[in-house]
């Protein structure tokens, strides 16, 4: 049997008694890049939140196996320590802790090693340069007053500092202009080189031009209804979901 980093098996998830994921299967191997596309309301963000362990999302059937372990019951912080990272579609604003303090605390708890101030600052500075983020953001309160684009960059900054095994990018490209998408894509490519697996949830193709995904999945009504290569994403870009919807409703 092949070894998967992430193995989702017949997953059903409800939120406030409404079933959103209705038997989803997905397998991701180390170093692979997968893309999930789908119309609004198909369950894309639910999948992202469920993988990260949001307490409002209840798994009613099936399981999520990550790095050889069933993680259904794990809290978000345990999952983070196991190597799952979620780049949020809408990152939260937390006044009171600066980006630098927060990331140092976060890195310390994920690695279990105290992060020394000076080397950490150097690392942070380098990563921020890569992302074209002004240094001053390091001493600003986490996401407070950041523009939509800066919030997204800050998510990618966190990803590149925390070096996860699986990075889930939930609509990371929305709200970014073309140049910013390119910069973000470069950072994602870098962690991909470190054998990180990537799950991209997106509406658009822009990010995919850079990322060269191994698989593209179409999520509809809580299930993956079609899997293919990057050509599938191109097809949707051109003609939308209508054909697939029709195909799917005939089943």
């Amino acid at each position: 049997m092949e070894k998967y980093l992430l193995n989702i098996n017949d997953l059903k998830v409800t939120i406030e008694d409404k079933e959103i994921l209705k038997g989803l299967n997905l397998q991701i191997k180390e170093g692979e890049t997968h893309v999930i596309m789908g119309p609004n309301g198909s369950g894309k963000s639910t999948l992202a939140y469920t993988l990260m362990g949001h307490p409002s999302y209840e798994i009613t059937q099936g399981g999520i196996q990550f790095d050889g372990e069933i993680i259904n019951e794990m809290k978000a912080d345990e999952r983070a320590r196991k190597g799952i990272f979620l780049s949020f579609q809408y990152p939260e604003e937390i006044p009171g802790i600066t980006v630098e303090e927060f990331l140092r605390t976060s890195k310390t708890s994920i690695t279990g090693e105290m992060q020394k101030i000076i080397p950490f600052r150097r690392l942070l500075k380098t990563k921020m340069e890569h992302l074209g983020m002004d240094e001053s953001y390091a001493s600003r309160y986490l996401n407070l007053g950041f523009s939509g684009g800066e919030k997204k960059k800050n998510e990618i900054l966190q990803m590149s500092i925390l070096e996860p095994k699986l990075a889930i990018l939930d609509e990371t490209d929305s709200g970014l202009d073309v140049d910013a998408i390119k910069i973000v894509a470069e950072s994602v490519m870098k962690i991909k080189d470190e054998k990180c697996s990537i799950l991209v949830i997106t509406h658009y193709n822009k990010l995919l031009e850079y990322l060269e995904p191994d698989y593209v999945h179409i999520l509809m009504d809580g299930k993956i209804v079609k899997t293919g290569g990057v050509e599938l994403a191109n097809q949707i870009d051109e003609i939308g979901y209508e054909n697939i919807k029709a195909e799917f409703s005939n089943i």
Partner: peptide, 14 residues
């Protein structure tokens, strides 16, 4: 809860 989740998703305990 969403703020809490955001912080916990970065490895900080509850």
């Amino acid at each position: 809860e969403n703020k809490l989740f955001y912080l916990m998703s970065r490895g900080l305990d509850e």
